[in-house]
Nucleic acid binder design. Structure first.
Lengths: 196, 196
DNA sequence: CTATAGTTTCAATAGATATTGAAAGTTTAG
DNA sequence: CTAAACTTTCAATATCTATTGAAACTATAG
């Protein structure tokens, strides 16, 4: 199938507008989405390319199609593998490594949510909690020193930090619920499907 | 109230470990969180500072406390205002502007979710849909041309893009549900509170 | 073993993003 | 009106992040 690197540039297909390569569009779209989600765009592009490939691809092929340097490809593949989103494969009489995409997208999403977002939120919760404690003490002390103004300021802050903590905790609960549900039935979305 | 810019560096409070400024910790924590969420850290820091302030603050005060330049403060405040997270205020006989934080955090979250995340997901959905269409046509054409190999490849891609679209659509639904719920009852978290 | 194909590493560099601060702009008191 | 107080803009610059590509490394065939 067109042996060299030359893809058929719309080689006389029937109806669709020529010059639009759906594969490339999807690759770029996933790239953007993944970047928006806080990863490097390259990760999204590589993963998407693999996800759309009927057969595993070699590093070289990936570099070609996405015009990335060998180094960039290697790094991206490593990072993707760390996140469990890409696996290595070997073809029998071939020295090269081949790569395929993990196909269960929800598994990946869930993984990231628990390994990254949840951690982040947890850490914020802790900070807020600590801060609230400290402010509570300080406010208390100020009261005893009859430092009225200072007391009420500290108390105001304490209350606000308290609300921050509450919101963060709620967010945490929501995240955990999402993760749990999606782990249980691989369709986390049921949450809202009942009647909404 | 300590007139110059010198904050009392743990001026003999009672119990808490000295040298820990809970306000600063919260400010930095929110900064990190907001950066993690795809905004500039400065936005989070400024908003948090205002949120914790019992009284509106002037741009100068903000710059001081966060050691940011006047320009940076001005820009951050503008952007925050665009997102509806900070409002301007004026004290009677004072030429300066003062700023206060929007206090309804869920309102802000909801706003961002619909103005930014939802848009992003929508756009991805559209791309996937278009790509699926095109692939469907191409696959069909290949079949007619009896290009077996090409047909099955295209068909494979079509199926995968279809799944991508499905996932994205689900995500979109989830997002919309979240937004809706939180708009309705200001406590979007109820979703999971029933028994989970 | 050596030669070769393939892969990874990492210092250098390109590129993107954030920040500064002085100049220009705006507002208000007088 | 002008001067003073304050705010905004934006070109210059610093900082952070991603990418390159050649050298080092690894694995295999012969």
């Amino acid at each position: 199938m067109h042996a060299d690197g030359t893809p058929p540039p719309g080689s006389g297909y029937g109806s669709g507008r020529l010059g639009v390569d759906p594969e490339a569009e999807v690759v770029e779209s996933v790239g953007r989405l993944i970047e928006f989600w806080g990863f490097k765009r390259a990760l999204g592009r590589v993963w998407a390319l693999l996800y759309l490939a009927p057969q595993p691809l070699s590093a070289a092929e990936i570099g070609d199609k996405l015009t990335m340097s060998s180094g960039a490809v290697s790094m991206a593949l490593n990072e993707l593998q760390l996140w469990g989103t890409v696996t290595r494969a070997h073809k029998p009489a071939d020295r090269k490594e081949y790569f395929r995409a993990e196909e269960d997208i929800w598994k990946m999403v869930t993984r990231v949510l628990s390994d990254r977002e949840l951690r982040e939120v947890d850490s914020a919760c802790e900070t807020f909690q600590r801060a609230e404690e400290t402010l509570k003490e300080q406010s208390h002390d100020a009261k005893e020193r009859a430092a009225k103004e200072e007391h009420s300021d500290l108390d105001f802050r304490r209350a606000r930090v308290g609300y921050l903590r509450k919101v963060a905790t709620h967010g945490r609960t929501l995240l955990k619920g999402l993760i749990l549900t999606s782990k249980l039935d691989a369709s986390p979305l049921r949450l809202l499907n009942r009647k909404n």
